[in-house]
Amino acid sequence: MGVLELKQGLSRHRGRVWSVCWHPKGTNLASCGEDKTIIIWGPEGPNWVTKMILTEGHSRTIRELTWSHCGNYIASASFDATTAVWDKKSGQFECNATLEGHENEVKSVSWSVSGQLLATCSRDKSVWVWEVNDDEYECAAVINAHLQDVKKVRWHPHEEVLASASYDNTARIFKEDAADNDWTCVATLSSHTSTVWSLSWDKSGGRIATCSDDKTVKIWREYKPGNETGITTPNNEPVWKCVCTLSGYHTRTIYDIDWCKTTGLLVTACGDDVIRVFKEDDDCDPHQPNFTMVCSMDSAHAQDVNCVQWNPAVPGQLASAGDDGLVKIWLYNE
């Protein structure tokens, strides 16, 4: 079994913290929540301290934030139905663009790897794709594929392919149709029996892990046209199949999942206050993989854990956010 060692608990937010996000170089951490502020944390000697507090970008809860891959922008999604984009052209992070259009709460926001596209999703059931040109944001598509509240959007690690998770119990994959520049749903991942709260791509982009209110984690694998396994691909589109279900580990809703791009470890944030780490067994059949729980940190937070994210640059370093108002930094040791 591995061990999750608490490095530091960061208390500065008032009320529930919904989301944390690492700077792509792993040198800073940003968090947001109910108090409508974004806090940027950074190391000072052995400790993490508040480097900046961003306020007045939103009039309601900030549900999620995400750092662009270049590290120069932060996008934040709010219950006030807007998405704010913050840049540090002036030396300080400032909100220089507010994206409007969703009818109600924006739940999630994600940057494509190129930084050219931004995706948002909302309780209004839609997913929006925004094109970025010289700090101007133009809506390129409004995708109405989901039947309910959309909880999460996440871009593919290398390609302009988007995945979303919803209250309608499904995750979906979207791609731009080269013929008419229309964004369409190319795959529906249905197997969960309740809300899909979050998802995470693996390093290659060939697999996705989803987590749900049904207390399970599922691993999905993409089968492209002409795959060796002989899985049929109607319309010449890749097919996604659930190849593994992790059940019996979580006792309440699983709010978040992150698949580490360096170590391959999976981490989950659960409503039972526990953070769990899973590792894929060596030498297992790629079409029937097996994951073993290697760590279960009881009372990781005093209340629900809302978000977990591996540091993209420091293997084993993990940040979490909880309803207890804390942001925590952990180190996973095998």
Partner: peptide, 15 residues
């Protein structure tokens, strides 16, 4: 029941 169990929607409702 699903709506009442969704703490995110409850949080948005009371805002």
């Amino acid at each position: 029941n699903k709506q009442l169990a969704d703490k995110e929607r409850v949080a948005a409702a009371i805002e």
